[in-house]
Design a protein around this nucleic acid. Structure first.
Lengths: 206, 206, 206, 206
DNA sequence: AATGAATGAGCCTTCATTCAT
DNA sequence: GATGAATGAAGGCTCATTCAT
């Protein structure tokens, strides 16, 4: 609680960031409104004032998280690259991006535990438009046009596979390490895994 | 509440199954002990009587889930198959197994949200070697020996990739559908995805 | 539950008084938070709101009880009395005070059963000097200076004895009565006992 | 649980001793039947089998404790001593006895917290006959007959005072130490206190 | 004489949320 | 726009005790 009046938008943003961390760390049910308030020295009352209820806050967190991700995806510049290089770049970007944004991955895991029930209520997320898939579609078309890619490649299935490998790498790290050791998560091994993922994807399209 | 004195093991098993469903559905924090009791018309009291506390029950659920999975994996018979056929069979088995055991997948997701904190306390899960990886190792060795597989194939990285694709398919279905529609989850599309996964894996080793 | 918004301090005080009665009557373990709430038509929730937990409430009760006693002791005015009269007055005061504040005596008994474990956590009780002992010291010094008291009198040992007799009279009344009848607890007998205590103490110092 | 059939009386005695320790340590409400069972590796079931319920066990503990004390009191041999020596001996015995049997003191404190409600139900304790008071009466009569003691001495009031000092010394040690330091409880100081108590009592009768 | 299994009742505590200004 | 005070509902858990043999 900074001592006096401040920009409402700043307060909102503070709460949102604190909530993102709290929800990502503890899940929707495990998160505590009080703990979110404590993270930024505000009161629970403020949180309800700005976001209505816990679910509303969670939805705002989810919305912001997705918006951020989509924006970063949109910023990926593949212009001028050959289809193969563009695809390689896209895969590398996704793999790295997921590793760098574990909180987002966790929020998605949590939302899946809840069968995407909350996402469904968020209007801004209902539109299925998605930069990642658009870029992939362009790459595929260019690749097919150039006779480099197979004709029966589905951009969606391709995206599914890129996502799966990049997502699992972050999402399941804990249990995978428990079961098989953490050897695959050293910097070296991750670099190799990344390259393997790229090659797998390229192998599919070619 | 069945009238009286039945097999204690049966009661324990009932609770465990009810708890598995409840935890898989709602997560550790979202699960309600009362709801678990209600699922089998027993009392909360019995649950604590058999499992000590909610965490103990959750751990028992996790342990049983993993044990079941490992047993089913161990039952997979690949004897007599060529390396390629064996690998194909193993991938198909994993893909199908995960689809058929969504509750297990959800428990693993939940445990990952908790950084595998509870798994770590379960002795029977800490040391156990894993049949899946053993089988994969044998396949790889046979494949290399036969000059069919590349020499630099890592069974562990291979397992990682098989798991990633099979796991994501179930775990992220909800959010993926929200973002890209549920086209990939029709029976037909799933069959194609399954085949794509097989091909990806084979492409890696060969 | 009074309708709305009253002085928070009044609510706190109400709870504290109700808790004092409840704890004095039933001990820490025997006391029921619900019963405390019922005593003043409030909810358990309010109790935890104001005092955190049962132990915190108990500590607050103990603190207030000691504070009250010390304040009453401090209010005892012995100025202008001769050493003998002052000592007599102090003994009488202590004897009467303990009889009049059975709840305090019971709280001290209870705390002794708990080896003063909770008292130890109360800061305000740890360092506070004690008026009773100070007054006694002054009396002793004056008495010695006047050649009335023996030289080897210890104010502390004297306080110990005054307390013992005054405390036991209240604390052990029930079992003493069970064992020897309640003859000693009639008004008349108590007056005699009181005088006997005074004389014992005077006999020690002179 | 010793492996097999044993003397029922021995089991009873084991439980009783364990319960004495548990009740003395934690009070009636603070005591746990399970903890009593654990102390002697038996089951709760056995306790209820032998003593009916927790209250019954507590009563048995109280009865045994009182019986032991009374027996030890009866064993005190004052024959052949002068009235003054006998009284001195009796006081010293009481002071020492209480110090040596803190568990008994604690049980009495606990029973007083409960207003001697349970004692009242124990038939063997209802008879007010008491060796201590009988001995004191004899001493007083002999003292008066010999012209050594004052005529208006009441054995009961005398017993009250001896008990008060000896009891408080043990019962209130914790809180007294918290308030005034534990200086009075060193061996040296206790010896002095003991002598002071003797002198006080002698001063009363002479 | 002895016991493993089961349990009703109630305990302290926590949570998100609303009240009233 | 902002907030201190209050709270209903439920949560996990524990306790002494009984059931049935």
């Amino acid at each position: 609680m900074r001592t006096w009046k401040q920009d409402p938008e700043a307060v909102r943003a503070d709460i949102l960031n604190a909530a993102t961390a709290e929800f990502a760390q503890n899940g929707l049910d495990g998160a505590r409104v009080q703990d979110i308030a404590d993270r930024i020295q505000t009161s629970k009352r403020m949180i309800f004032y700005y976001f209505g209820d816990k679910d509303g806050l969670y939805r705002a967190v989810l919305e912001q998280a997705y918006r951020s991700v989509r924006q970063r995806e949109a910023e990926l510049d593949l212009k001028g690259l050959s289809p193969v290089d563009a695809l390689r770049r896209l895969v590398e970007f996704t793999f790295d991006h997921h590793r760098d944004h574990a909180d987002f991955i966790r929020l998605v895991m949590i939302e899946n535990i809840h069968d995407a029930r909350h996402m469904r209520k968020i209007e801004s997320l209902s539109g299925t438009s998605n930069a990642a898939i658009d870029q992939l579609r362009e790459i595929c078309e260019a690749g097919k046009a150039a006779g480099l890619f197979r004709d029966d490649i589905s951009p969606l299935a391709l995206h599914w596979q890129i996502s799966a490998l990049s997502f699992f790498n972050v999402a399941n790290r804990s249990t995978f390490s428990m079961n098989f050791g953490d050897g695959l998560f050293s910097e070296q091994a991750q670099a190799e895994l990344r390259e393997q993922v790229v090659k797998s994807i390229l192998a599919i399209v070619m």
